[in-house]
């Protein structure tokens, strides 16, 4: 609101309460940064030494483990291929649902709406067996397709929303100008939804980059591990609980997320809110 300082409202008690609740978060994320570059004596919270040793995972690979770069590459492949699949499939399906007369249109819309609310984790057991059957267990391609498919109803829904905002008159004009519906879509409509496409793309990429459960279930083996599984198994196996190392890997892991988020903040907000709003 613009009238911040109305006399009937004091903002400091609210700020105080909000601040108190936010302390755990602030502490957690502050020390995420601090602990990766410093050492702190047990029982203290003030670092006593500046060091880069926690980042040694970048250039040293402990025997019996996979190189971080291999894992990062896997994660990159996983997230970007998944994004590509989601984008290309929902790009056409969203348009068909938004704009085209076709048989079963009503049924398809109901289906997408239902599935987009459907809790996908309940399907993992069946999917696990499907992958076993297909021989795609412990492969990146299998988990890519599963994650992409599970996000698909959401992607189609968001995409349909973007198509809905393109004025009908543009398409009508295109048709009158002699273009087929396919040309209208390709030449006139697609350029209008480019921002939406980017937003959904970044969103999907971040989802894929952060995803833990699906790769953990469907591709846990070392050579196809993604960063989340790598970090989780490191935490689970380690006896010393070297939080500084975990945090350094964690920071390395989350850095692209933060960068992408800062760049595409406003567009992403749209999806966070709009996607689930239906």
């Amino acid at each position: 609101m613009s009238d911040k300082n109305s006399s009937n409202f004091k903002s400091w008690p609210v700020t105080l309460i909000l601040g108190l609740f936010s302390v755990p978060l602030l502490v957690m994320y502050l020390y995420l940064f601090i602990d990766t570059f410093t050492n702190t004596a047990p029982g203290s919270l003030i670092p006593n030494e500046l060091t880069f040793e926690h980042w040694r995972f970048l250039w040293e690979t402990e025997p019996g483990t996979v190189s971080i770069w291999q894992v990062t590459l896997n994660t990159l492949i996983f997230a970007s291929v998944m994004t590509l699949v989601i984008l290309s499939v929902s790009l056409t399906a969203g348009y068909a649902l938004s704009r085209l007369n076709m048989p079963f249109r009503r049924f398809f819309l109901a289906g997408v709406l239902t599935l987009h609310a459907f809790p996908t984790v309940t399907l993992v057991i069946a999917l696990f067996i499907v992958l076993q059957f297909l021989g795609l267990y412990n492969t990146l391609i299998g988990v890519i397709f599963i994650k992409a498919a599970l996000m698909l109803p959401f992607g189609i829904w968001v995409m349909k929303g973007f198509y809905d905002t393109v004025p009908w008159e543009i398409e009508m004009a295109g048709v009158q100008d002699g273009a087929s519906r396919f040309m209208v879509w390709r030449l006139l409509v697609l350029p209008q939804i480019k921002p939406g496409l980017i937003a959904l793309g970044v969103f999907s990429f971040l989802e894929g980059w952060s995803e833990y459960l699906m790769p953990q279930i469907f591709a846990p083996e070392a050579d196809v591990q993604v960063l989340s599984v790598y970090l989780a198994s490191l935490i689970a196996d380690d006896q010393k609980f070297d939080f500084n190392l975990f945090k350094s890997i964690g920071l390395f892991y989350v850095l692209p997320v933060i960068v992408l988020y800062l760049v595409f903040q406003n567009k992403l907000m749209n999806i966070y809110g709009g996607g689930s709003k239906g």
């Binding site: 004025p167 008159e169 543009i170 009508m172 004009a173 048709v175 009158q176 002699g178 273009a179 087929s180």
Partner: peptide, 16 residues
């Protein structure tokens, strides 16, 4: 539409 050879001007112009 594509073959009727009709020119249309829309209320909101519908420029691309």
């Amino acid at each position: 539409s594509q073959h009727r050879n009709v020119g249309v001007v829309f209320q909101n112009y519908a420029l691309y």
